[in-house]
Nucleic acid binder design. Structure first.
Lengths: 222, 222
DNA sequence: ACAAAATTTTAGACTAATCTAAAAAAATAT
DNA sequence: ATATTTTTTTAGATTAGTCTAAAATTTTGT
């Protein structure tokens, strides 16, 4: 059996490892993301290592074993499916769903996950553009680029975000930046590196460098 | 804050009190329904009494206070709404939903409960015929009778069940007894008190006395 | 290369929820 | 009406997950 808490640790280790391109996750990072103290994390890592869910060398950080990764992917799959449900069926905004999905992701029922997936039409991406692991526990690979790495005047499609905070998402809403919209960088300010962007070939909008770095985009039709 | 465990105790106390027409619930009964030992229940009762969720006199059993009842009704409301979701939207059978709803009932989000309720069309009954408490925490009163208390040849409508075990529900499925069907008792066997029943004015079926005692029915059109 | 700083682990303690065993109270049966 | 049985509570332990404080290890800065 895997407890609620263990599932959370495994999920966070997966997501942080992914963010670090496969590099080990540190104790302090985990403490930050689990909202606990480093000492508590150390204890939990010992326990997860005993269960063979993580590769753990003291002081050297951790990565997931295959067993741990399967559990993490199952939780992430549920999280993202529920997020689709909340937005597509219940009408929530993409900025309102994270905390609810954090709870729903731990509901334990193979049949429920299967039925929910079918009910939603077997979606491949969640409302933030993140890929949904398949039922076999495989994470689809995606290759998005930061908008800030795209050259001037190259048309790209908005595919995802690398920050999920409500305030960031609400900021995008205000600027009418949604998944699937077209973006073309017109100019980068010499002064503050902020961006002037043509949105959907129609309106020009201005976004900070920080926004541009957290928008994930793709060249037309891939 | 009310923990998952406390919510469960309060819910069970509510349901058992209801079953006993408002009489106190005993420690042993709670132990049975919480799958724990009497000693553990005693501890929890002390704690719930301290929080003013129950009226507790040692050795005398417990009832809920208004505060405790509100929490219990909130949990029961969520449980029954999720059951409707599982059957109406995901296609589960009424015999498959209890364990999943036991988990979903503890998801804590006012907005989610509200949206789910609307999504489902504000249902008043769950798939077993049990009434769904309203958003103000009021349980609708229903007046059903046991089929076994109905006179011969009186047409009644099937409204609910007083046992929720999968095996009982599957037994009803096999006999095509569903919520809303019409039942008319034709004969009660001298020998084993089993029932011969006219179903939907068409087929005659035979059910045991035990089944008849656990079917809740109502006179036509009330 | 080594001292200082930062990070991580260990030690010992706490809380929530559970348990077993024993004591206390209530119910029952002759 | 009192002895026996049943039920309930208390006492003392256990486990999971957390904490603070102190010790151990690694990293950083000169």
């Amino acid at each position: 059996m895997t407890s609620f808490t263990e599932e959370n640790y495994l999920k966070i280790i997966y997501l942080l490892t992914e963010r670090h391109n496969g590099n080990e996750v540190s104790t302090n990072q985990l403490a930050e993301h689990t909202q606990t103290k480093a000492a508590s994390v150390s204890d939990m890592l010992r326990k997860l290592a005993e269960k063979n869910y993580i590769n753990y060398r003291k002081y050297q950080g951790v990565t997931l074993t295959d067993a741990g990764e399967q559990i993490a992917l199952g939780v992430i799959r549920k999280h993202r499916l529920w997020e689709v449900f909340l937005v597509e069926k219940l009408g929530f905004g993409w900025d309102e769903i994270h905390d609810i999905a954090e709870q729903l992701e731990h509901i334990d029922s193979k049949e429920l996950t299967k039925s929910l997936d079918d009910f939603l039409g077997n979606p491949k991406f969640d409302p933030h553009g993140d890929p949904i692991p398949d039922s076999k526990g495989k994470m689809p690979s995606v290759s998005y680029q930061k908008l800030s790495d795209i050259p001037l005047n190259q048309s790209v499609v908005m595919m995802g975000v690398s920050v999920h905070s409500p305030s960031f998402l609400q900021h995008l809403d205000k600027n009418q930046i949604t998944l699937g919209c077209t973006l073309k960088i017109r100019e980068i300010s010499e002064f503050d590196k902020s961006y002037s962007i043509l949105l959907d070939e129609k309106n020009t909008i201005f976004v900070s460098n920080e926004v541009a770095r957290n928008l994930l985009v793709q060249m037309q039709e891939s």
